[in-house]
């Protein structure tokens, strides 16, 4: 579904991603872990189409298409979804309207009938139960005055409503208390399916107590330095990122 090859990306002349390779297939859940400044969020933003990052080398194929040539909204309609690390507050834009407009843009793209307000409400109410959200939030402006936990659950709700093929969670677990973390994890687990790929980007191992990944990758200084199964997360917990970097030098010399 997703193939990242030798991806280099910079912001304002600083290279942040220095050659990322990653292949993600439908049905898989990948976790990308890394310390602050390793390029985790940059990777997520580049995949979602943020134009503040400049891709200087490499390519990204999504379902065989050149993802980097697609506009952010085109990517979304084609099934790419990123849960924001910092969801944006948009005063004056009603959440229900926004969600329905987004869903209908995607449904139209998929050749499905657009939902009217009543049908949409039925649709979204089911999804809200999944993330324990109060229906009243639908009538508020997008993320405005939401607590940190509400914002993150809102991202999961959006993911549940939009039913992406590829979901990228950018530190959705950061800053959550244990109850909110469990709700987010439950949402992600419910959405796991054979035709959907999920990438969980995280700083902390804690969420992997609730979401069991198929693959774990360690991103340090703009490169994936280790890849493995879920046991890698446990090793990381014990040794820390510093231990990984040494291995990095070793794998690189073997690779070259």
């Amino acid at each position: 579904m997703l193939e990242i090859r030798n991806l280099h990306a910079s912001v304002e002349g600083h290279e942040i991603l220095k050659g990322v390779d990653l292949t993600v297939n439908a049905g898989e859940l990948h976790s990308i872990m890394g310390p602050n400044g390793s390029g985790k969020s940059t990777l997520a933003q580049v995949l979602a189409g943020r134009d503040t990052y400049e891709v200087t080398q490499g390519e990204v194929l999504y379902e065989g298409r050149n993802l980097l040539e697609m506009a952010p909204d085109e990517r979304a309609r084609a099934g790419v979804f990123m849960a924001f690390q910092y969801p944006v507050e948009i005063p004056g834009v009603n959440t229900a309207y926004f969600l329905r407009a987004a869903l209908n843009a995607i449904r139209k793209h998929r050749g499905l009938e657009e939902l009217d307000a009543a049908d949409f409400l039925d649709w979204v109410k089911d999804k809200m139960k999944l993330v324990d959200m109060d229906e009243r939030l639908l009538n508020r402006s997008i993320n405005e005055g939401f607590s940190g936990g509400e914002k993150k659950r809102g991202e999961i709700l959006q993911m549940a409503v939009l039913e992406p093929k590829l979901a990228i969670m950018d530190e959705t677990d950061s800053g959550l208390d244990i109850d909110a973390l469990k709700i987010v994890a439950k949402g992600v687990n419910t959405l796991r399916s054979a035709d959907r790929a999920i990438i969980v980007i995280t700083h902390y191992q804690r969420i992997l107590d609730y979401i069991v990944p198929d693959f774990v990758h360690v991103l340090v200084d703009g490169r994936i330095v280790r890849s493995g199964g879920k046991e890698l997360a446990i090793e990381l917990e014990e040794k820390g990122y510093a231990g990984m970097e040494q291995k990095n030098a070793a794998t690189e010399s073997i690779a070259s």
Partner: peptide, 29 residues
């Protein structure tokens, strides 16, 4: 607000639709 634009577009709303929605939100107050 470019952040808001990106947020809306990342959910599938076209560039003009996102812009329109943000202007609407501003003026509707």
């Amino acid at each position: 607000d470019e952040n808001a634009m990106f947020y809306l577009r990342s959910r599938g709303l076209s560039e003009p639709a996102s812009r329109g929605l943000l202007v609407y939100a501003f003026a509707s107050e």
